[in-house]
Simulated scan of single mutants.
Amino acid sequence: MTNQLIREALHPYREGLVIATKVGAVRGPHGSWEPAFTPADLERAVHDNLRHLGLEVLDVVNFRAMFSAEGLMEAPSRRRSPRSPSFSSAASSATSA
């Protein structure tokens, strides 16, 4: 919705305008934010941003990482089995280096 408002207010975009977007979260059923970190989630979010903003290229895409006390969060429907590599262990390794 925000991207559509930006497009309505600013399109056609003036030369040199840089628009930053963010990916990595989606609205949950009750308006809360839920993590959306899978490659398919991220690709879908980028394409949604392009379409809603009326752009062919995004200048800046920020990744919205969502953390809890246990580390990087995953949406309940996206949790992996304990044997699968997870974002949490990857994030822990990256931050402890």
Rank of each mutant, 00 (worst) to 15 (best):
L58T: 05
V57G: 01
V26L: 05
R44N: 00
E43C: 08
P82Y: 08
H30W: 10
D41E: 01
P82D: 05
A25K: 01
V61L: 08
E8L: 13
R51P: 06
S88G: 07
H11E: 06
E15H: 13
T95A: 14
M66P: 03
D41M: 00
L53Q: 11
S86C: 09
I19A: 08
G71H: 06
I19N: 03
S93W: 11
R80D: 08
R7P: 09
G16S: 02
S77V: 00
F87K: 08
M1C: 07
N49Q: 13
R64T: 13
G71C: 10
E74D: 14
E43D: 10
V61I: 15
L72S: 03
S77L: 01
R80A: 14
T21S: 06
V23F: 04
N3F: 13
R80W: 09
A90H: 09
F67M: 05
V26T: 08
R27P: 00
R14I: 01
L17M: 14
F67G: 04
N62F: 14
L5A: 13
S93L: 13
L50K: 06
R51I: 08
V61C: 10
E74F: 05
V46S: 03
P76Y: 00
N3S: 10
D48P: 03
R44K: 05
S93K: 12
